Each structure stands twice: as structure tokens, then as C-alpha cells.
Simulated scan of single mutants.
Amino acid sequence: MITERQGERLTDWLDAVRQDDLPSLHTLAVGIDRDLGAVIAGLTLPWNSGVIEGHLNRTKTLKRQKFGCAGFQLLRRRVLLTP
């Protein structure tokens, strides 16, 4: 379902999980139900936010390295000049 982008099968999988006697999977199913549309879209659509997440992670790392040691101008320069 994940590797073949078959998100439409998710509801069948959730029904099977609810019928099993595995409480931890029941909790997972409830969490997925809260945002079912987004989860199905994530399993179906070809787009992802990997590039953006990488930039955010890099920016947060730079911020943590300089936290308390320098002002915003140095942080800005590091973010803009880092490859």
C-alpha cells in the first residue's frame, strides 16, 4: 500500500485492524481516522515535503548551534550562505 501508492486500500486495512484483537493497532487506527483525507493523500499522491523538511532541519540546526552566542544577523548570514 505504501510503496505502490495505493492509499485507497487504507479504509479496508483500517477495518481489518478494528476486527483484530490488538489494542495498540486500534489506537493507531483512531489516530489515522482523525485525519483520514490527509493520510490517504500522502499514500496516493506523488508529492512530498522532503526538500522543505531538509531546509527546516538545517536552519534549526544552525539556530541551535548559535543560540545565545550571536544575534539574528549572524544567523541570517549562516542560513543564506550555507550550501
Rank of each mutant, 00 (worst) to 15 (best):
L36V: 06
H55S: 02
S24L: 11
K60P: 11
L62I: 12
D15V: 14
R76N: 13
L22S: 09
N57G: 15
P46F: 00
D20C: 11
L62G: 04
K60M: 03
S24V: 11
K66F: 13
H55M: 07
D35S: 10
D15T: 15
S49C: 11
A38P: 08
G37L: 06
I40E: 06
S24Q: 07
G31S: 07
D15P: 06
L28W: 09
G31P: 15
S24T: 05
R76S: 15
H55Q: 06
H55D: 00
L45F: 09
S49Q: 12
D33N: 09
L43V: 08
R18W: 15
H55A: 01
L14K: 12
V30Q: 06
N57H: 07
R76L: 14
N57K: 07
R58D: 04
N57A: 14
L43Y: 02
L43A: 03
L14Q: 10
N48C: 10
I32G: 10
V17L: 15
A41S: 12
N48K: 02
R34K: 14
G71Y: 05
Q73V: 14
W47C: 03
T44L: 03
P23H: 03
G37F: 06
D35M: 06
T27W: 05
K66E: 03
V39K: 01
V51A: 08
D21V: 08
N48G: 08
H55R: 00
G37E: 13
T61M: 04
L62H: 01
L36S: 10
T59R: 01
A29V: 14
L62T: 00
L74H: 11
L45R: 04
L56F: 07
L22D: 14
T27K: 02
P23S: 03
L22A: 14
R18F: 13
L22C: 13
Q19D: 15
D15S: 13
A41W: 00
G50M: 04
L28K: 00
H26D: 15
Q19L: 15
A29R: 02
G42R: 00
L25E: 02
T61S: 14
F72A: 14
L36T: 07
G68S: 11
V51Q: 03
H26S: 09
N57F: 06
G42Q: 01
I52C: 14
A16G: 04
N48A: 05
F72C: 11
T59A: 14
A16P: 14
S24W: 10
D35L: 04
N48R: 02
L56Y: 08
H26T: 14
P46M: 00
A41G: 09
L25F: 07
P46C: 01
S24N: 05
A29M: 11
V30K: 09
A16N: 11
N48H: 09
L74V: 12
K66P: 08
G42D: 05
A41E: 08
S49H: 02
W47T: 11
Q73M: 12
V30I: 13
K60N: 04
T27S: 13
D20S: 15
I40V: 11
D35V: 05
K60G: 11
K63E: 07
L28I: 09
A16S: 15
L56Q: 10
D33P: 10
Q65W: 05
